[in-house]
Structures are given as structure tokens and as C-alpha cells.
Design a binder for these strands. Structure first.
Lengths: 136, 136
DNA sequence: GTGATTGCAAATCTTTTGCACTAAA
DNA sequence: TTTAGTGCAAAAGATTTGCAATCAC
């Protein structure tokens, strides 16, 4: 909810090595100034259109992946054939409501994963994802 | 590796309420008599063709879902736009090799998830999935 | 200007569906 | 028989790609 100056987003894109184009700035505004969000490409596209931001679905996909590569977003896979993007890139886990298809952060450091096995030879652990699946 | 009699599969399908058709028996044989497997529909279809089992891809999809609903398989989602099916339905977690797209069971009770939060009101926990993502 | 970015439409990939045909009980 | 299961081809979604037009620097 903190109303940061628009230039903050501009800086944020620049530091990520991404040209602050009209589309990227507009999408960044939608993504990062509305609190934590779990959003699909289709949803973000609809959201953009609702705000009179003209942007193609292809660009939304490109932008989401660029933001993810730049570490501004985190991609979450819980549902075959649908990608969610999480604006919260800190270390945390998720509830997944199977019926509605909604995702929700599991607060703070409640859940803990212990005794994570060693990465097999020649590999490194990128991330440990925990999804608590819920009926309803 | 235990060479069980063919009738075992027949029984297994019957108890699951599934007619033991030629296709289902053949697919069950591929799935359950080769040790633990993590397989996609496309892979199982190719596997079947290699064994001279004529079965359509649509039937492979149907069969995988029927087996999953019957509790014979477990569906795992780690990769957007691709479903894996695990012949090991016991409680366990996975390594995911991001480069090769391979899945591997994390042995036994090594990894532990503790302090799983309560399910939100009106919901129940279906399952807790842990995926350890690896480079390589 | 010049190279990065965008939009559009077409292409691709995985999965599902409709329906006539076939097989199990 | 009678009903479930199968194959095929078409449909449906989600995502990606090719390329000319446009924009940021």
C-alpha cells in the first residue's frame, strides 16, 4: 500500500537491465504496487486492459518471463497447464486451493523443511518448493 | 523387479473398479512392472508403441487419469504444461532436475516438513508436496 | 540512427472432447 | 445384449515464435 514514487519502478527496471518501456512500467505498476499477488498471464492481461493499458498477451508473457529472469518475480507451478507468478520473491511457501485454483502465501516462517537431502553429484539446489494442497 | 503373475494386474484393475481391457492391462504392465517410474503421457505412449502395443494417445491420457483417480498413480506437477505420473503412491517427495526435466524420488523419510499450518477454515489438507529443484 | 521492444497472427504443444466403432460382461 | 472403453480427428487452452512496425536511448 505504500505509495512509492513512480521513479522507483523506473529504477527497478533499469537495475534489472530492462529498458523501462511504457508497457513494462505499466505492468510493473500493476504487479508491484498492489501488495503481494499471485497472478497468471491471462489475469494480468485482463487487469491491464481494465486499466486502459494497451498491451498484447504476447508482451505480457514476455514481460513476466523477463521479470522472473531478473528476479523480480517468482514462477510457481501447481497446476498442469497454468503458470502463476508471485510478486513475493522471498523464501516462502504456498497454500493451493484446488477447487478455485487460488494460491495463497503461507505466512512467515511457520512451515519448516528439515533434513533436506544433499543435492546429487554435479547439481545444486535451486529452491525448495512446498505446496500445501487444500480441498475447497 | 519381482515377477508377479499377470493375474495380479488383472486383480488390481478389478479392485479399482476398472474393466481389465487389453489396453489397460498392457499399460498397467508397463507402469507397474518396471519399478518406480515418473512418466508423462507422451512417454508412456512412446513406450507402448515400442512394445508393439497399439493404443491411442487419447486412451493413454484417459488411462493415466483413471489410474490416478483410482489411487494407482499419483500426478505430479513441477513443470508448466506437462504432467508427470508417479507409480509410487506412498508419501514421499521429489528432486526435479530442471535442465533435463527428470524427476526422482527423495528416498524414504529423509526430508521432513514440520509445523505445517492449519488448513484455512472450511478446507482440508489433501497433500503436502515438496519439490527440491536442482540445476543440471 | 540503431538496436531493443512490441503487436499481431500463426504456429506449437499438451490435453480434452465428440462420436462412431469395438469389446467386456 | 448392454454398457463401458477405444480410436481418431477435431477442438481447446496456454504459451511461443516470426517478422514488420515502433520506441528508447
Amino acid at each position: 500500500m505504500t505509495a512509492r514514487p513512480f521513479s522507483h519502478l523506473l529504477e527497478r527496471l533499469r537495475s534489472a537491465g530492462l529498458r523501462p518501456t511504457r508497457q513494462r512500467l505499466a505492468l510493473a505498476k500493476l504487479l508491484f504496487e498492489g501488495g503481494d499477488r499471485h497472478i497468471t498471464a491471462e489475469q494480468l492481461h485482463g487487469d491491464a486492459l481494465n486499466h486502459n493499458i494497451r498491451v498484447s498477451l504476447a508482451t505480457v508473457y514476455n514481460t513476466l518471463h523477463q521479470f522472473t529472469d531478473a528476479g523480480l518475480l517468482r514462477e510457481i507451478v501447481v497446476d498442469a497447464g497454468r503458470s502463476y507468478f508471485d510478486t513475493n520473491t522471498s523464501d516462502h511457501h504456498h497454500f493451493f486451493f484446488e477447487r478455485s485454483g487460488k494460491l495463497e502465501d503461507i505466512p512467515g516462517d511457520t512451515l519448516t523443511v528439515s533434513r533436506v537431502p544433499q543435492a546429487p553429484a554435479g547439481t545444486n539446489i535451486t529452491r525448495v518448493d512446498v505446496v500445501v494442497r487444500l480441498t475447497g
